[in-house]
Amino acid sequence: MSTMKNFVIAGVGRIGEYVAEEFLKLKASGSVSSLTVLTRSTASDNAVLEKVVKLGAQVTTVDYNAHDSLVSALTGVDAVVSALGGYGHKAQYQLADAAKAAGVKLFLPSEWGLYSRGVTDGFYAAHDAVHKHLEKIELPYALFYNGMWSDMMFNPYAGWNIPQGKITIWGEGNTPITWTTRRDAARFVAHLLTHIPVDQLAGKAFSVEGDRKTLNELVEGYTARTGKRLEVTHLPIAEQEKIMKEESQFAFKGIMAYLLVCYDRGAVDLRTTSPEGVANGLWPEWNPKPAVDVLVEAYP
């Protein structure tokens, strides 16, 4: 059983809100002593922050460039979970330095997607650089991966326009992809950090898989469940490869192209890309939601 009781979450954007809520459920049951959310804005300016405060979180407004203030906010904390995304990802260096100075036992950098350990090119090279910094300052850390967020990625930008009955797939669509809802990923992280001793977490990578389906299987599954026919168009993956070369890897179009190419190449199949394998067995009762269920609930 983990001895960690006091946690900090940095950011409550696309995934941080769910992580905060899951830790707060454990706080309500007595498994967690405290949860602090670090933010650049005040609670009164953010509906999500207002919600987590009502659930029992403490919110601390921070300036990631103010080292001493950040150290103060992390003093007495057992583990820091980073949910910083986009340009905020760079703030993890300051966050890690402060965590080291404050004596934090474990740091989870912001991953929540494809396996990035050792990846030194493309979008995920920035993740590897953070890992190297954590090693340099000798701050214990663990990595957590969950593939694609099934409750977020079935949208027109990724080729899924279900309201119009049209699906675009770049490539053949037969490559397995790991899908996990944000809620299920958050539940697993909260369970992991409160049930596994820190010495069994530090230095390790944990990949989880809510479901594993190809794009074609998802189309077939959705049609079987709803009776709705979807018009599927297959386009050459070379179209997305071209966008990758032309767009910044940090621009939205560049990121989407990168992910769509990863779909086709098998880079989002955590069973094959994670040398450690999937960690679902660490919590047999996890019961994550299948990706087709997510689709049917969103578009009944």
Score class of each variant (00 low, 15 high):
residue 9 I to H: 00
residue 15 I to H: 02
residue 18 Y to L: 07
residue 24 L to C: 04
residue 24 L to M: 04
residue 25 K to T: 11
residue 30 G to M: 13
residue 33 S to H: 13
residue 33 S to V: 12
residue 34 S to R: 13
residue 36 T to I: 11
residue 36 T to R: 13
residue 37 V to G: 00
residue 42 T to F: 10
residue 44 S to M: 09
residue 44 S to Q: 15
residue 49 L to T: 03
residue 51 K to L: 03
residue 51 K to Q: 11
residue 53 V to M: 02
residue 54 K to D: 09
residue 56 G to N: 04
residue 58 Q to F: 06
residue 60 T to I: 13
residue 61 T to M: 13
residue 66 A to P: 02
residue 73 A to K: 00
residue 73 A to E: 03
residue 75 T to W: 09
residue 77 V to C: 08
residue 79 A to N: 06
residue 84 L to A: 07
residue 85 G to R: 05
residue 85 G to Y: 01
residue 96 A to P: 09
residue 97 D to R: 15
residue 100 K to E: 09
residue 101 A to Y: 06
residue 109 P to Q: 10
residue 110 S to T: 13
residue 114 L to N: 03
residue 117 R to T: 14
residue 118 G to Q: 04
residue 119 V to F: 02
residue 121 D to V: 13
residue 124 Y to E: 07
residue 125 A to T: 04
residue 126 A to F: 13
residue 129 A to R: 15
residue 131 H to C: 09
residue 134 L to A: 02
residue 135 E to H: 06
residue 135 E to W: 06
residue 152 M to S: 12
residue 159 G to T: 04
residue 161 N to G: 09
residue 162 I to S: 00
residue 163 P to F: 11
residue 165 G to Q: 08
residue 168 T to W: 05
residue 170 W to F: 12
residue 171 G to P: 02
residue 173 G to E: 11
residue 174 N to I: 06
residue 175 T to F: 09
residue 176 P to W: 08
residue 178 T to V: 10
residue 178 T to G: 05
residue 179 W to E: 11
residue 182 R to N: 11
residue 183 R to Y: 08
residue 183 R to I: 12
residue 185 A to W: 00
residue 186 A to I: 02
residue 194 T to F: 05
residue 198 V to Y: 05
residue 198 V to S: 09
residue 199 D to C: 11
residue 204 K to D: 08
residue 207 S to K: 00
residue 213 K to Y: 10
residue 215 L to A: 14
residue 215 L to M: 14
residue 216 N to I: 10
residue 217 E to I: 07
residue 220 E to P: 01
residue 223 T to E: 15
residue 224 A to P: 07
residue 225 R to S: 14
residue 229 R to V: 14
residue 230 L to E: 07
residue 231 E to S: 15
residue 233 T to C: 01
residue 233 T to A: 14
residue 234 H to I: 03
residue 236 P to K: 11
residue 237 I to A: 05
residue 238 A to I: 09
residue 238 A to Q: 15
residue 240 Q to L: 11
residue 241 E to I: 11
residue 241 E to D: 04
residue 242 K to V: 10
residue 243 I to W: 02
residue 249 Q to W: 15
residue 250 F to G: 03
residue 252 F to G: 09
residue 254 G to Y: 00
residue 254 G to L: 02
residue 257 A to F: 01
residue 258 Y to A: 11
residue 258 Y to E: 14
residue 259 L to G: 02
residue 259 L to W: 08
residue 260 L to A: 04
residue 271 R to A: 12
residue 275 P to Q: 10
residue 275 P to N: 03
residue 279 A to N: 04
residue 282 L to T: 04
residue 290 P to A: 06
residue 294 V to W: 00
residue 296 V to D: 03
